[in-house]
């Protein structure tokens, strides 16, 4: 009897890129549910639009690059990029915003650099940064959480607002500045922190409504770490560093600096820590490097929030640390078994 030969190992644990990506999508579900509850069904419309745009642009580029369509569309990586970006956008943002951002993320940030596995920057955050710089008004028109509205726009109203632009007063009626934005503006105007935080837009630890979404993303993120799809070191490094630096400034000047728990529970801190910074392709890969990389994202997030030009800084912090990732990897190889020093000498 003749047999085909192959090289060892002959067995596989059965994981695949598609499975890894699907896990990320599953882990986003609690967060999505919370976002829909807090900001209305517009979130789902954004997700659907982003998914369609991502799959279409992925298919287009794959066809142009003569790559197997089924294989690479089936890996779900485009969907992950789409969802990560869509969840970072205002729920009632115009349809072209999410389509443009997703298209840019897939075509330029991912495929121009070589496609899956080769992108030096997080594609979703590139898309986000492009939109934030190009369309600051649309990007900062966030829907107010349901707690602060008489009634959150329903599905039909959301579609109308997203596609037809709706009547501007109507949109103005349901939108509000984000808690981080409000805090920043009021501090700049010289209002004391305590008075500002007493406003209804602020909740127990973070922003009203936003707290719930943060908690839901935390649940999904912890599950992702438990499944080892995301390396715990990156969120630990990021949230740890953010907590440390926020604590330092809060202790130094509590009248002008929000408490560390406010920073952790606000904006995209938790979402970014578990879902954005953990994108393995653009992050550091060594165990120690991931801690450092995460810490860098956390520090930069705080720096941008406090001294930068934007209310939240997760996206730029991640992109900046993407640049540093190869260097971090170079200086943080693990100590090889049986070696005395870190650089492998005996």
């Amino acid at each position: 009897m003749r047999f085909a030969i192959a090289t060892s190992p002959h067995v596989h644990t059965g994981t695949s890129v598609a499975r890894v990506m699907r896990r990320v999508l599953y882990a986003l579900v609690p967060g999505i549910a919370a976002m829909v509850w807090v900001f209305g069904p517009g979130v789902l419309v954004q997700l659907a639009l982003a998914s369609l745009a991502a799959l279409a642009s992925e298919a287009l580029v794959l066809a142009l690059r003569r790559k197997p369509l089924g294989l690479f569309l089936g890996d779900c990586s485009a969907l992950v990029t789409a969802w990560l970006l869509a969840l970072a956008l205002p729920a009632l943002a115009p349809w072209w915003l999410v389509v443009l951002g997703t298209g840019f993320a897939i075509v330029v940030a991912k495929h121009v650099y070589g496609g899956l596995g080769y992108n030096p920057f997080n594609p979703a955050m590139i898309g986000y940064a492009v939109l934030l710089i190009s369309f600051p008004r649309e990007m900062s028109t966030w829907t107010a959480p349901r707690e602060l509205l008489a009634h959150t726009p329903g599905f039909a109203a959301s579609l109308d607002l997203i596609f037809a632009g709706g009547a501007v007063p109507e949109l103005d009626a349901v939108s509000s500045a984000t808690p981080l934005d409000t805090l920043r503006t009021r501090l700049d105007l010289g209002y004391p922190l305590g008075e500002t935080l007493a406003a209804p837009i602020f909740g127990v630890v973070g922003g009203t409504g936003w707290e719930l979404a943060t908690l839901a993303f935390l649940v999904g993120g912890l599950w992702l770490c438990a499944k080892r799809t995301a390396d715990w070191r990156i969120p630990a490094g990021m949230l740890g560093a953010l907590a440390v630096i926020a604590t330092v400034f809060w202790l130094l000047d509590p009248a002008r600096h929000a408490a560390p728990w406010f920073h952790l529970a606000s904006g995209a801190a938790v979402y970014g820590a578990f879902f954005i910074a953990t994108d393995p392709v653009s992050a550091s890969t060594t165990p120690r490097g991931r801690l450092i990389y995460g810490a860098g994202v956390g520090l930069l997030t705080y720096v941008i929030r406090i001294w930068g030009g934007y209310p939240d800084g997760v996206a730029f912090a991640v992109l900046l640390m993407n640049i540093a990732a190869p260097t971090i990897d170079h200086y943080t190889p693990p100590r090889v078994f049986g070696a005395r020093s870190k650089d492998g000498h005996d």
């Binding site: 190992p9 002959h10 067995v11 596989h12 059965g14 994981t15 695949s16 890129v17 890894v20 197997p68 294989l71 890996d75 990586s77 496609g115 899956l116 596995g117 080769y118 080892r228 799809t229 390396d231 393995p280 392709v281 992050a283 890969t285 060594t286 165990p287 991931r290 990897d329 190889p333 693990p334 100590r335 090889v336 078994f337 049986g338």
Partner: peptide, 29 residues
């Protein structure tokens, strides 16, 4: 019983190989 004959995809640098390497190498590098 054998590994399914899946096509090789690009490395996504997930680091799974790093976490299982008994010699503490960086297999993906």
């Amino acid at each position: 019983e054998l590994a399914p004959p899946e096509p090789a995809m690009p490395c996504i640098r997930c680091g799974e190989c790093v976490s299982v390497c008994p010699v503490d190498l960086l297999p993906q590098q």
